[in-house]
């Protein structure tokens, strides 16, 4: 018994050490999976003598849920997509950045310094921009892939070989593009048609996965899958026959942003980190790793030249993508219902 107590005491001391000792000089990041190179975190850690801890999520909605379920006040920054930035602001989960707090904010390219989701960049800085559509293994299906029919009305050959992102915002936005209806529609016939269309498409899908979106394509577990453009480029490195689609109906555009969170325990370090990511050399490292696009001036000289010519980063001219919209509570309830119907 005595031994048990001493062991317990020793272990408790260890635990306190694990939590208390390094309380100074920390930075807690809540980030997408596989979205920042470890070397860059190490570099920040070294330059500013800060211990960086990072948790990852696989959808904007999952991030919001975790923050609301008590994680707010434990993370310093998160990296949501445009529409989720505006939701975080509306929910009061984002902290305000006073002017002058970010030395490098002027590095943001002029077209991106006053986005609709965060006017005047008061809570966030742009991180990476890209598109969401899908990739197809052309060895399995060689006909034209540039249509959302591939996912929502798939040809015989792809039945049962499709992965869909487990993310309500992106799936329903792409579905709206497919049907040519507005997002956050309140038109009952449109909503019913959307529900029916998804119900008809689901039997042809193999799985709902976001974080394995690349893996299932690269490993050949599915022949087509919804995916982000840069992630598709990485999948193509393993399986050359994968081709990212720019459907004629359109696709989903997005801009992920680093948001300063409310009650950030290490606000100073969070701002340092944001400034760090506004330096061309650093954000370029993210771009080279994630294979999307950044909107910081002066990154050109650091960027992998291959990126510019990649099929994935060159949407065809003449077709527009859409940004995901945040709906109001009443409309959102209907979309939530459609999503639950889909996953039941």
């Amino acid at each position: 018994m005595k031994k048990l107590l001493t062991t317990t005491a020793a272990a408790t001391a260890l635990l306190m050490g694990a939590t208390g000792a390094q309380a100074e000089g920390k930075l807690a990041i809540y980030h997408w999976f596989e979205y920042i190179p470890q070397e860059l975190l190490d570099k920040f850690s070294k330059e500013h003598d800060v211990e960086v801890i990072m948790d990852t999520y696989d959808s904007n909605e999952a991030m919001l849920a975790t923050l609301k379920a008590g994680a707010i006040g434990t993370y310093d920054v998160a990296v949501p997509t445009d529409y989720m930035v505006s939701i975080l602001i509306a929910e009061g989960l984002a902290d305000e950045i006073a002017s002058g707090e970010l030395a490098n904010i002027g590095n943001v390219k002029s077209g991106f310094s006053d986005p609709a989701y965060d006017p005047g960049l008061k809570h966030s800085i742009p991180y990476q921009g890209g598109t969401t559509s899908f990739a197809v293994d052309t060895a399995e299906y060689s006909a034209d892939i540039d249509s959302t029919d591939i996912i929502f009305n798939p040809p015989e050959e792809l039945h049962g070989k499709i992965n869909v992102l487990d993310s309500q915002g992106e799936v329903l936005a792409l579905a709206a593009v497919h049907m040519g209806i507005p997002q956050c529609s309140t038109d009952r016939d449109q909503l019913k048609a959307l529900n029916d269309m998804l119900q008809a498409a689901k039997p042809h899908w193999a799985s709902f996965n976001s974080d394995t979106a690349k893996e299932v394509l690269a490993a050949g577990d599915v022949a087509a899958g919804m995916i982000f453009n840069g992630y598709a480029a990485k999948a193509r490195e393993t399986r050359e026959t994968l081709k990212y689609a720019y459907p004629k109906q359109g696709w989903v555009n997005w801009m992920d942003s680093v948001v300063l969170l409310k009650d950030a325990p290490n606000r100073e370090n969070a701002l340092k980190f944001m400034d760090f990511l506004l330096e061309p050399e650093n954000i370029a490292q993210v771009t080279n790793f994630a294979r999307y696009t950044d909107v910081i001036q002066g990154t050109a000289e650091y960027i992998d030249p291959e990126l510019a010519s990649m099929h994935e980063s060159n949407p065809p001219a003449g077709i527009e993508g859409v940004f995901v919209e945040a709906c109001n509570a009443e409309t959102q309830a209907v979309y939530d219902k459609i999503w639950t119907n889909l996953k039941k």
């Binding site: 048990l4 062991t7 317990t8 272990a11 408790t12 260890l14 635990l15 694990a18």
Partner: peptide, 10 residues
């Protein structure tokens, strides 16, 4: 391991 040792002991 720290959690398992303490939790199991207590």
């Amino acid at each position: 391991f720290v959690i398992a040792i303490i939790a199991a002991s207590v």
